[in-house]
Structures are given as structure tokens and as C-alpha cells.
Simulated assay, not measured.
Amino acid sequence: MTDHLPFLSAPGMAAGFTAETRPRAHGAGIDLYEYDRVTASLESLLQWPDACRAAAIRHRAAAEQAAARGRIRTAGERHRLAARWFHLAALIPDPDRARAEDNERESDRSMEQALALLEPRARRLSGDGFTGWLRTPTGVNAEGKRFPVAVVIPGMDSAKEEFHALADTLLARGLAVLAIDGPGQGVFATTSALNAADHRRAVSQALDALEETAGTWEVDLDLGRIAVVGLSMGGYLAAAVAAHDSRIRAAALISGPYRLEWDAFVPFVTATLTQRCGSPTAARAFADSVDLAALAPRLHCPLLLVEGGEDRIPGVTNAEALAADLPHAEVLHVPHGNHLLGNAQSDWLPDTADWLADALLTA
């Protein structure tokens, strides 16, 4: 089961991956003290899924106990933490694909339980190749308003359960948020292949579904004002949607790739992309197809490109190249930010949410 992924048990791999993923876990809303406790004893990355899953199960049990006592808020927050930990359990290119699938589905189930308690107005939106949650602002100031929509698009090994801080920050600024899994992501990670064209169609179908069902909800969406927010590989996927779907009014790309070079990938990325795309041949073809410059002539909407100066992922956005290909784009460069800028949330997240709100609410 592990012969084709020997690096997972290589000396030092667990410690290195744990350190690299720590800011990402923080960005996903995981308490770092808990993260350190869960990962401290790992000797091999093959132990990662079960360690994270055990943390998720503990939170789920606590949620059920809180619900039994009528502590609804606590129960919802614990279910949401369970969703985060189940998702983290699926981050590695797990050779046990049945386990990986189960962890993603449990993450999805925990998020459903969390939203049922915390945001009963949230709605599941599903169709061919996509599923997601539509959340809308709440509170007195939200009543009677029409909400623009920000579609959150995850990356190569991400899922709709990861980017809570981003969604909450957008909701606080008056935007509805649709966070989705597309082909090869989240609940589809083991049942379909990551493919840019298929993903683009899935997002467009999600927008179609919004239009078809918007009138059946008790909230009013402004579907003339839609943005996409893509994170990591999702940055490129979001750009592809914006380049081909005229309904997109603005796009923010967070740590998105400019171009990818297959030969520059470390084994971890090669293995992950191979699993998500379905085969080494498909993975290499996907990597070779990623080229933001090729999309540039079709990207006419306002663009925000967020990058961290300490991002070590090969091919990720760099301002010099983008300034040449996308002269109308704004660049938010955080010198000390890493990939996804989980170590610098205060330096990019509020400004990015403000930019999106300005692009949609004042357009």
C-alpha cells in the first residue's frame, strides 16, 4: 500500500510537514496548542490521518454532549472544529484512498451539523460535479438587503471546510459566501479528477443553480454582483472561471500559481496532484496547462493578487510577471507571508475582504 509513496515514511518528513502545515492549520481556525499536541508524537506521515481523525472525533463527541445539554452554540462550534480536523486528516496523499474518502465525507457531515446549529439559513447547493454551502450575513443590519455573492474556490488539496476565516470576514462585510468543492476536491477527491475545464464548468453550473433557486430562499441575492476567490491552486481555477464566465464581476487570487513546472515539484506535490488528477499523465498535463498569462487577454474584471514573500511553492504568483501580463490587476504583497499567508492573516485578510466588498457593493 505504501511502496509507491516511500517519502511519506522518510526520516524527518513528518516533522517537516507538521511545521509547514502549522500556519495553514492556524489559518483554518485550528488552535495551535491543540495542533502541537496532536502532531507532537508523529514519527511518520502515515500516522497523520489517524491522529487528525482522532482529534475530529473528540470534537464531535464534545459537540454531541453539548447538544444533549442544550448548549447549541458550543455544539455548533465543536462540530465546526471536527470538520476542520477531518479535513486536515485528508491533506496528505494518503495511499489508503478509502480512508481519505471517509475523512472528507465526515468533514462534510460535521460542517452540515455545525451550520444546522449555528446558521440555520445556510443552504446546501449541489449539482453535476460540485457541492457547497451558501451562507448569508445575519443580524439586524442584514434584514431586507440584497447580498452580492463571493464564491470561494479551494485548491489542489483543499476543500470547502478549510477557509472559515475568509468566509466569516466576507459575511461580516455584507457578502453572501458560496464555498464549494469541485471535481477532484473535498467530497469528490477520490471519485472525480481535478481538471481545469471540468472545474470551470462546475462553477458555472453552481452559478446557474444559484439563479434557478434564489427565489426559493428567504434571503435575496444580488446575482448581478458575483466575485470568485481562489486559494492556492484555486487561484488559477478562479481565474479560469473569471476568464470564461461574464457573470464574474471581480476576482481575488490568493497564493495562486502563475505557471507550474512539473520537474520543480517535490514528491509530496507530485503524489498529491497525481491522486487528484487520476494518473501521472493527467497530472502532468494539468500542470503544463496552468498558465495565467494565457488567460490574461480574457481577464477584464477587477483583479486582486495576494502573495506572500516567503511562499516557497514553485510557480506561485510573482508580482513582476503579473504586472506585465495583467497591468490592471492590484497586487497585495506581504513580504513575510508564506503560502496561503496563514502566518500573516491580519496583513491580508481584512484588506482583501474590503477590496471584494468595494468591488461588489460599490460597482
Rank of each mutant, 00 (worst) to 15 (best):
D3N: 11
L8N: 00
G12W: 14
H26E: 14
E34T: 15
Y35Q: 07
A40S: 11
A51S: 07
A55H: 04
E64H: 12
A66Y: 09
A68C: 04
G70V: 02
G70R: 04
R71W: 05
R73W: 07
A75E: 07
R78V: 01
A83P: 11
R84I: 15
R99Q: 12
D108K: 02
R124F: 01
L134E: 01
R135W: 00
G139W: 05
V140A: 14
P154W: 10
L170K: 05
L170M: 11
R173G: 03
G174V: 06
G174M: 09
G182L: 10
G182W: 05
N195V: 01
A196R: 08
S204Y: 10
E218Q: 13
D220F: 01
A239V: 12
A242I: 15
I248D: 03
G278V: 09
A282G: 07
A283G: 09
R284S: 02
F286P: 07
D291Q: 05
L292V: 03
L292P: 01
A293N: 09
A293G: 11
A293R: 14
L299T: 00
E310W: 05
D311K: 06
I313D: 02
G315I: 11
G315R: 09
N318Y: 03
A324W: 06
L332N: 13
N338W: 01
L341P: 03
N343C: 07
A344W: 04
Q345F: 00
D347G: 07
D358Q: 15
